[in-house]
Design a protein around this nucleic acid. Structure first.
Lengths: 256, 256
DNA sequence: ACCAGGAGACTGGTCAGACCAGTTGAATTC
DNA sequence: GAATTCAACTGGTCTGACCAGTCTCCTGGT
């Protein structure tokens, strides 16, 4: 044996609230407590776990900050079990982004990779209903750009389009991450996307872009779909990222 | 206006512990409280925030479960501020993976995408020191495979190699996510990687694979590096994922 | 018979005070 | 001077209390 193997693991103290949280989390993740179901009230949990209320509350706080449950004062049904949502992932990524640990350039580069691969896979694996959903979102964008609805609604349709693409790719994780990174980017730059003057032009260009992507996906041309996705992000963000990180975007731009 | 815009936002109650947690988080993320620094003791926070101790503790619990601080009983210096670590991202992704919301196939497919793009970017952007670090890890793998060290140490070197690649790509996020997904995969399948008999063969093959990747990156051949990364994951996992999701891997396999 | 309104029994959010076990560092002892 | 002891902390937990909501159900008026 090259190195003396330690037989015993260092034992670290396990807090009471941790064990409570773990038990509940286990039940949730195992499907025992499906989304929408209710936890017992805090006082009931107190007696079931045989701990103090503060302990139970700290455990619930942990679960709540993990997005697993939600509680509402006065609710006689107890805390509500939530499905796993990407919100928490967004927040985590957002923190990562804020803490200079990753730059805006990195975020955008990451999005370029995710969107491009999402598109590529969607081109290969899409079903008819996927295509229909994408087309539907594009139509919604048109309606919204014609009316005077806010940019916010337009962005929402945009996001839904990308979600449809991600679902078509068969990989919800891709979509979730892309969405989370998108949110993180929005949080980093305040993204007053464009002043009202440019808004119309921008929306038109965006719609045209999405049409191209949809066409490429429909044709099964993954390479084109991927390139389109990358290029759009590059065009939009290239002159907004930090000076030093533009090379990241360029590198992510061309396929080879 | 096509739809009546609501002028007022719905106001949701903000809990006291939330505001406490937000204030502290803000100070940490803004760099005001750098990693390694200490928070005041709980009783001190109680008087600064003018709330009860349970409120302060619930706030600290939230921050702790977000990986921002760590506290130790009896520590007269107060809770320690941690840097942003990818651990939390791993846990979040792990939960996502466990909650049938994403399958093993999706996880592996995601890894294929991340690793491949990581390799491709590294081929384009690497520096000499990056290459040196990768080579170093490969050497370590050789040493470990020769000796009788556990597979665990070998895997660690493997992970460090991938981390070096990710750093070379200039995008720490890619590496972080790849690592998180890797951990999630490990958690899902118990990954008794291979029985001792196969271990040696497997390690040799793994080393050969990493050599190829390193060579491709050194040559700046991004396409090859990407293909190698994808192929290795496919070979390893193709017959371990659920029956229905193998097509995901195949789809992610070929570039076009 | 029906519905509005109110009383009461809950809920979660917060606070105050207490105790315990563990850590620390200075005072004490050898 | 080095080892030991001790007192003053710390965070972790428990208890019991109060508040402001929310729900249920019962009541009283129409």
């Amino acid at each position: 044996m090259s190195a003396e193997e330690a037989i015993f693991q260092p034992v670290e103290p396990v807090r009471a609230y941790q064990r409570v949280a773990e038990q509940i989390e286990e039940r949730i993740l195992s499907g025992d407590l499906p989304p929408g179901s209710r936890l017992p009230g805090e006082r009931e949990l107190v007696s079931q776990f045989a701990v103090g209320r503060s302990t139970v509350r700290e455990a619930l706080r942990v679960l709540q900050s993990a997005g697993l449950v939600r509680s509402r004062p006065g609710d006689p049904l107890g805390a509500e079990v939530l499905g796993i949502t990407p919100d928490n992932l967004s927040r985590t990524l957002g923190r990562l982004a804020r803490s200079h640990l990753s730059t805006l350039g990195e975020l955008v580069q990451f999005r370029m990779v995710l969107d491009a691969e999402s598109n590529r896979l969607a081109a290969r694996l899409h079903s008819e209903s996927d295509l229909a959903r994408m087309a539907e979102q594009i139509e919604r964008m048109e309606t919204l750009s014609a009316g005077e609805a806010g940019l916010h609604a337009f962005s929402e349709a945009d996001a839904l389009f990308h979600q449809a693409v991600a679902e078509a790719s068969g990989n919800s994780l891709l979509g979730l991450c892309a969405r989370a990174v998108h949110d993180a980017v929005v949080e980093v730059i305040e993204e007053k996307i464009a002043v009202a003057a440019d808004a119309t032009v921008w929306m038109q260009r965006s719609i045209a872009h999405h049409r191209q992507v949809l066409a490429a996906i429909r044709d099964g041309d993954g390479a084109l779909a991927a390139r389109l996705g990358r290029q759009a992000l590059y065009d939009y963000y290239a002159d907004r990222v930090e000076e030093g990180t533009r090379r990241l975007l360029s590198a992510a731009l061309d396929e080879e």
